[in-house]
Design a protein around this nucleic acid. Structure first.
Lengths: 257, 257
DNA sequence: TAGTGGTCTAGACCACACA
DNA sequence: GTGTGGTCTAGACCACTAA
């Protein structure tokens, strides 16, 4: 375990400055620099009680600093285990060329489930669907490097399914794959996308191996064909481990390095 | 001020459930529903001590719930003022058609400053610039509906400036506009973009009217021309008030090629 | 000056992972 | 069990805003 003796001294020193910077913010800066210079990826930090004692602050104050560093993807904390130095964020391509049409071959998405439900109002609005109208909801998970980085619900209204669609057909993942096959019949008309900050619903949190409320990036997509919205999806990406890339150079994202 | 009597009762009730949900999370749910049904945009909530007392929890616990709601853009808290119900997030277009080349006419960016600096390592990496090499750093602010929603630093290496570029030329905003004019000479070669979660540096926080450490969406862009990276920018968007949109229906299709 | 949210403390107990 | 991070309390004082 690296020595943090010098850092303790600096916390005390700056505390006397003219412009009072909150302790937790200064602590975050000091820890951040220590992570750069004295720790390597995967290394375990001293526990919170230990660190708080060393820096001469209450545990709650130390936790404010750790929370920020976790938000920025610098640390990973796990209950019952400890706090470790996180690897750099993974670049996940969400540009239309990589994420262009649901169910396309070569996608990184794994279909998990599907059921016929009444979409929540926010989803109904995306689809221009009257409230109360049912749709197929396909649940998928996106894997990268053996880890699940995102979960998604893809809403497909009945109007986007062929006339022979069997409402009483198979359930679960098989039904989901059938819905995705239906979408292949459309001539692609483009898409819309939005990114915003959110917090993980408990269902998403379970799948992403995070606590409920963890920060996530929510990617909302509308798929167009035949001059209307034929499907819409709400994807939830782990904000701590992911960087969403929109490379349009037509090749591999150079930002990945 | 709407009555929250019913809500208090529900907090007490659910506390007895079999699966112990943290109080702050349940509190968040209850408050969220109250915001939907009993409050309207701009309305002022009771203060934190008052709310904590009503729900029978410590102020710190209540604050955990409020912090989450603020993160999701539902609330706005200002020291010395109070907590108000936030308006829906503003959609800010960051698609290539709207944000296509720095300094283009009709942009929503206001040039604030410019100086010759040595870019931080992260920026040098974006530019494929050797460490220590200087670049012009143009600082800009993006306005939407009279509010500043983003700040940006655009790095332009010396190699991207014309032979006759005057290093000792004007300072401040005027210098920035001169650098932007230089960029107009290139034949545009496309761009790269990435979005990730970060926290506001104190400088950004001041410009965005937020406290340092506030959650922000960081948009990193590389501009290509002549087969190389001629400029790169790091833009910081307020995560609480902004939804980044990548709409391409009305404009050029990103699916081309 | 009064009232707000922001910071900080020094405890306590709980849920979880792992040996 | 033992040790970790997660939750929660009941205070206190500070920085800021606006009347």
């Amino acid at each position: 375990m690296p020595d943090v003796g010098e850092l303790e001294a600096r916390v005390g020193t700056t505390e006397l400055e003219r412009v009072p910077e909150p302790k937790h913010r200064h602590l975050k800066t000091v820890l951040s620099e220590a992570l750069d210079s004295e720790f390597s990826v995967g290394e375990i930090l001293p526990n919170e009680r230990e660190l708080a004692a060393r820096f001469g602050v209450a545990r709650a104050t130390l936790r404010q600093a750790l929370e920020q560093l976790e938000l920025e993807g610098r640390l990973q904390r796990r209950r019952g285990v400890g706090t470790t130095v996180a690897p750099p964020r993974v670049g996940v391509d969400v540009s239309p060329t990589q994420h262009s049409w649901p169910g396309e071959n070569g996608e990184a998405w794994i279909t998990a489930d599907c059921s016929r439900i009444v979409p929540p109002p926010s989803a109904a609005r995306l689809l221009d669907l009257p409230p109360g109208e049912p749709a197929e909801a396909v649940r998928r998970t996106r894997m990268t490097h053996g880890q699940s980085v995102a979960t998604e619900i893809l809403y497909v209204p009945a109007a986007s399914l062929a006339a022979g669609w069997d409402e009483a057909g198979p359930e679960g993942a098989e039904r989901g794959r059938a819905v995705l096959r239906e979408l292949q019949h459309f001539e692609r008309g483009g898409q819309d996308r939005a990114v915003e900050l959110g917090s993980a619903r408990s269902e998403d949190a379970r799948q992403l191996d995070r606590l409920p409320g963890a920060p996530v990036l929510i990617v909302t997509t509308r798929y167009f064909a035949d001059g209307r919205t034929v499907a819409a999806s709400v994807a939830t990406y782990r904000a701590d481990t992911c960087r969403l890339t929109f490379g349009n150079q037509g090749g591999v994202s150079l930002l990945a390095g």
